[in-house]
Design a protein around this nucleic acid. Structure first.
Ligand SMILES: [Mn+2]
Ligand SMILES: [Mn+2]
Ligand SMILES: [Zn+2]
Ligand SMILES: [Zn+2]
Lengths: 141, 141
DNA sequence: ATTCTTATTGCAACTTTTTACAATAGTATA
DNA sequence: TATACTATTGTAAAAAGTTGCAATAAGAAT
């Protein structure tokens, strides 16, 4: 529960409240380190906070996303997964074995600048997942 | 219905069948040109083919995706939308007004090569959506 | 034209996700 | 510490999306 303080402050600064539900969900995301589906978040957070509902989990994940504490990732499974918002990164996933690796955001910096100057948009966010064949799975082709 | 021939051939070459359901759905995607949700596809295709079911629409959109005739896009709404698979492109969307524009795939070519050499993966696909503020919406900031 | 194989569909049941609204409970203020 | 304000939650119902299976029909073979 020691991870709570900074999150509480961030929320309060924006006029929102820290609640046992948000705390439990943040705790799960913070200590898991992995990508979790809403259902996985629900199951794990329920242990810490019995009575938590799935509705609240969905709402909270969206809320945390909007406030920069969580990040959704569309990994091609057709369903969103979530992770705690630490360093900004993207994903590269093997379409055969499912192996995932992170893509540093600075690899996209040049592209970002190029896009901004071409389009006139100011980029603030992106959903980026690359899919391919990992070195192992390329051998079996 | 004149758009059907090439699609039918592509499917048959892979051992699959062309059906009135697939034809109606392809027809909708082909002539819409826009991104459509499964529900929009269902409603429009139903006009051409009464009796079509939503189950079939979901299954067909996934089938067409796997076979390269349709492409899903995750536009940040939390729901997938689909479009006919023409030229390869990505998307840039304004988080305020929702305005969308296309991003040419060749802008990502350099990044693709860099990623492949860094990771050892062979890239085959990607889900890429950029989000930001369009020129108009930047003024109101 | 008829038969055969099996890919594809519709149906019904199920799971996942969203929504509306009244009850609850953070937190600021006195 | 008690009070007031309203953000947040749980409940129940609806909507969106998935799955298993028996019936159907596309297309190849005869
Ligand atoms: Mn990640
Ligand atoms: Mn598009
Ligand atoms: Zn692999
Ligand atoms: Zn805009």
């Amino acid at each position: 529960m020691s991870c709570a303080q900074p999150y509480a402050l961030q929320l309060r600064a924006r006029g929102y409240r820290m609640t046992p539900q948000r705390l439990a969900i943040l705790h799960v995301l913070h200590h898991s380190g992995k990508h979790l589906s809403p259902s996985e978040v629900y199951q794990q957070a329920c242990v810490e906070l019995p009575g938590l509902t799935e509705t609240t989990v969905y709402r909270t994940l969206e809320f945390l996303t909007e406030n920069g504490l969580a990040r959704p990732a569309y990994m091609g499974s057709g369903h969103l997964v979530y992770e705690i918002a630490g360093h900004e990164h993207h994903h590269l996933k093997c379409r055969i074995c499912g192996h995932e690796m992170e893509v540093r955001h600075d690899l996209l910096k040049t592209l970002y600048r190029q896009l901004e100057s071409e389009s006139g948009y100011r980029l603030t966010d992106s959903h980026v997942t690359f899919i391919g064949l990992c070195p192992d799975c390329q051998k079996g082709e």
